[in-house]
Nucleic acid binder design. Structure first.
Lengths: 213, 213, 213, 213
DNA sequence: TATGAATGAGTGTTCATTCAT
DNA sequence: GATGAATGAACACTCATTCAT
C-alpha cells in the first residue's frame, strides 16, 4: 500500500497512460486526502475530483455515490489493516501479547497512513448508519473481545472481566490516542508514538492481568 | 436536572403560562432530542421547531443560527456536568479515587441525560472546529490529566507515566463506553452501567497504580 | 415644518406624555431618517421602531404597512412642499421667474429637509408603482409643464418647444442636483447650493427664452 | 447588438446547438428583461431562470450571485454604450457638438436597448453602493464634465460656469427623458425621441454658449 | 395604548447526481 | 472513457405582520 500522498504525484505524471484501475485508485486516494482535510460532510465531490485531477462526473463511473466512495475508502484501506490485525489471532502467543501486537499495529498505522486513520477515526468512529453498512466485523473491537475472552478462559486474565466491556475500554484508549494525533492534541512524531504505545500498555493492559499471573 | 424527555410533556401542558425563558428551554430540549436522534447535519431546523411545537422562525429569536444552537446545547447541558466533575479536583482524596469519581460521574450521566451524552459524543467528540469554538477546557481530558499528574507527583502512580497520554487513554475508555451505549452496541440499562463501571476501573485504572502502592 | 432631526429629541423627552398624534409623528420622522440612511428596501420595520424608541408592533397601530408608511412620508412631508411650489403658479410673474422660484424652492429644500429629499429622490423618482399609488400630481414636473406651456402661449418662450419634454428636461436637472447632494457627489453646503442654483438657471433656463425676448 | 427581446426567440430555436457562451448570454438577456419588468428587488432568481428557460441552479454556474448578475448586466451592456460615448471625446469638434453627440447616443439607446436602459435608469441611477462597486467612471456625467470644462477653457462656453454642476444638470435632463420613456410618461416612439432630442438641445445646451459666441 | 413573542411565506444558494456530447 | 453543463430537491435564514397580554 502506498502512502496516499505519494500516489498523487505519480498519478499526475502518468495521467495520460493511466489504466482504468489507476484512475479509480487516483480518485480514491484523492478522496482520502480530502475527507481527511475537511471531513466527509464538508467535502464536495468537486473538491475530490479537483484533487484527483479529473472531471467530477467521472467519479460516478467508478463509484455509485459520495457515500459509496466513503465506503470504498474504508474497504480498500482500513480493511487491509484489519486483516493484518486478524492474523494476530492465529498465533499461539499469550493473550496479553496478542493485545500488545494489535495495539501496536493500530497505533503505528498513524505513521504510515495518517490520512486514512484521520478519516476512519472521524467518520466511522461515530456513525451508526455507516458502521452498519460496513458491517459489524469492520471494527477491531470484536477481535479484541475474542482475544480477551480467550485470555479469560485460559486464566491469563482476571476472571471477573466482561470481555465485551473490557474490549470497548481497551479499544477506546487506542482510538482516543489516534484522535489525539489526528486533532493535533498530542505530539505525533514517531518517537512520541512509540512512547504513547508504552504508556498505553502500562495503563490499559496491565489491569487485565490476573494478580496471580 | 430533569431528564430532557420529561420536560417536553410538562412544557406542553403548561404551554400557555410558559415564560420566555421556558420557551427557550423548550427549543433547546427539542434540539437535544432531534440532534440525538438524527445527528446535527441531518437535523433540519424545521424538525427542531416541530419537535418543540413552535414555528421555525421562533428559533431565531432565541438562537442566532443552527450552529449556535448546537453550542448552546453544549454550554447549557454538558458544561453543568463539567462543573460537577471539576469539583472533584478540589477534594483531597487520593488521585485514584478522584479518577474513580470522575469516571462515575461521566458514565452515570448516561442514565440521567442520555440524549445530551449522545449529542456530545457524536458531535463534539470528533469535530476540531466545534471543539475550538467551545474552548479547550470543554473536554474532561485536561482535568483527568491534572489529576494523573498530581498522582504521579505524590508517588501514588507509576513514575514513568506521561500524564497527557495516560489521560487520553483513560478518557478514551470512558468515551468508548458511552459510544457503545449510544450506538446500542452494549447493554445500556442501569445494572449494565454499574457493571461496566467496575470493569472500567479494573482495566483502565489499576494499571496506573504504583506497584509499591 | 420642523426639521426632522429636531423632532426626535423633543419626542424622546416628552415620550411619556406624548399624545397619540405625537407618537405617530415620532414614528414618521424616524421612518424618514431610516429610509434616508438605508433606503426603503433595506430598512426593516424594527429599525424604524428602534429609531422611534417604540416597540415595532406599535407601528401597526398608526400605519397599515411598511408600504403605507412610505406613502405617509410622502404625503406628510413632500406634499407640503408641493403646495408651496403650487402657489407660485398663482402669481402673475413672467414664466421664467416662476420657474426660477420653483427651482429655488426645490433646491433649497435640501438645506431644510435633507432626509425627506433623500427619500423622495431615491424611492419615488424611479418607482412606477409607487408613483401611481401616490398619484400623478405628486411630481412637480406637471406643474413645471404648465408654467412652460403658459410661457410659450404668452410668447415669453420659444414657440417650437414641447412643454412636456421641456419640463422633463428642466426637472431632470433639478433632480440630478438633489441626487448629487444626496449621494455626496457634489458639495452640499449652503454656499454650494446657492451657486448651483445660479448655474442651473444659466444652463437650463436661458435656453427657453425666445431670442427676441 | 440586437434588441434583447429578439435574442430570446432565436436562442430558443437554437437551444440545442447553443454553446456555453450562448447560454450565459441567454441568462443575461433574460435577467435584463425580468429586471426591466419588475425591478431588481422584486425579481426572483427563479423568474430569471424561467424566462431563460433553464433550471435556476444553472444561473450559479455563470454568475456568483443575483447581485453579481446585475453587475454583469451593467458591464456587458451599458459599458458598451459608455465606450461609444467615450470616443466622442477624441474628436476635435467644438464642445457643443460633442455634447450634442453624447446626448444623441444616450437618448437613442432607448430605441435600441430599451430594457437595458430601463434597468440602468432604475437600478444604477440611485444606488450609491452599486455605483461604487461598478466604479465612478461608470456614469457618463464625468465625461460630460470634461467636455464642458474644455469648452469653458476654449472660450466656447460661458466663463462663469462650474463644469461639474453644469454636467450634473445636463445629464439630469437626459436621464429624466429616459426615465420618462421607461415609465411611460412621455411618448417613446422613434419620432418622439428625435423631437425630444431637439427640445433637449434647445433647452439645455443653448444656455451654455457664450453670448459672444 | 403598548409590547415583543410568535408566525410562516418567501428566497437565495448549495451541491449530489445525471446526461448529452 | 471522460467532460462539465444542466438539473432540482433541499435548507437555513429573514422579516413583515399578527396577536395575546
Amino acid at each position: 500500500m502506498t502512502r496516499s500522498g505519494e500516489g498523487r504525484i505519480l498519478s499526475r505524471l502518468a495521467e495520460s497512460q493511466a489504466s482504468a484501475e489507476d484512475k479509480r485508485r487516483q480518485i480514491l486516494d484523492a478522496a482520502v486526502r480530502v475527507f481527511a482535510r475537511k471531513g466527509f460532510h464538508a467535502s464536495r465531490v468537486g473538491d475530490i475530483a479537483e484533487e484527483a485531477g479529473v472531471a467530477h462526473g467521472l467519479l460516478y463511473h467508478y463509484f455509485e455515490s459520495k457515500d459509496q466512495l466513503l465506503e470504498a475508502v474504508f474497504h480498500e484501506n482500513w480493511s487491509v489493516l484489519l486483516e493484518r490485525i486478524g492474523s494476530v489471532e492465529e498465533t499461539d502467543e499469550p493473550a496479553a501479547d496478542q493485545l500488545r501486537h494489535i495495539a501496536a499495529i493500530l497505533l503505528r498505522t498513524w505513521l504510515h497512513l495518517p490520512d486514512v486513520v484521520r478519516v476512519v477515526v472521524r467518520e466511522f468512529g461515530r456513525s451508526p448508519e455507516l458502521a452498519e453498512r460496513i458491517g459489524e466485523l469492520a471494527r477491531p473491537i470484536e477481535l479484541i473481545e475474542r482475544v480477551i475472552a480467550r485470555g479469560v478462559a485460559r486464566g491469563e486474565f482476571e476472571q471477573d472481566i466482561d470481555p465485551r466491556v473490557a474490549a470497548t475500554v481497551v479499544y477506546g484508549g487506542i482510538d482516543e490516542l489516534l484522535t489525539g494525533w489526528v486533532l493535533d492534541r498530542l505530539p505525533a512524531d514517531e518517537e512520541a508514538v512509540v512512547a504513547a504505545e508504552r504508556t498505553f500498555f502500562a495503563v490499559s493492559l496491565r489491569g487485565l492481568l490476573a494478580k496471580s499471573g
